[in-house]
């Protein structure tokens, strides 16, 4: 299943400093939920400092999640991870 993953607000720094990633998720028996994707991203796409992305099986505080980890991913979904900014 092909999806589009996007990082912003500095979260891209953990992913090779690239904001947009075309991702091909391998086929599996059960449907892909957001929680699965988090783990998959950690194992396959994350380049450094995993503790700045995942904590206790969810994204760390300060990264915005607008859906629950149970969200079922559909082909061609665009999933965006936004780290909050604090500078002024």
């Amino acid at each position: 299943m092909e999806i589009n993953v996007e990082f912003g607000g500095g979260a891209e720094l953990l992913f090779d400093n690239k904001k947009v990633h075309d991702v091909l998720l391998p086929h599996k028996e059960k449907e892909w939920i957001l929680g699965d994707l988090l783990v998959w991203l950690k194992d396959n796409l994350l380049k450094e400092r995993p503790e700045l992305f995942l904590q206790d099986e969810s994204v760390r505080p300060g990264i915005l999640v607008l859906d629950t980890v149970n969200y079922v991913i559909k082909p061609n979904d665009r999933i965006i991870f936004i780290s909050t900014l604090h500078g002024g």
Binding site: L52, R60, G62, L64, T84, G87
Partner: peptide, 25 residues
Amino acid sequence: CLFPVPPPPHAVTSCGDGGVLGAVP
């Protein structure tokens, strides 16, 4: 409501460290 827990301090970048282009703020 959106951020019940503050981010880990070392995950936060300041303008002094990360830089900022004036026209953006």
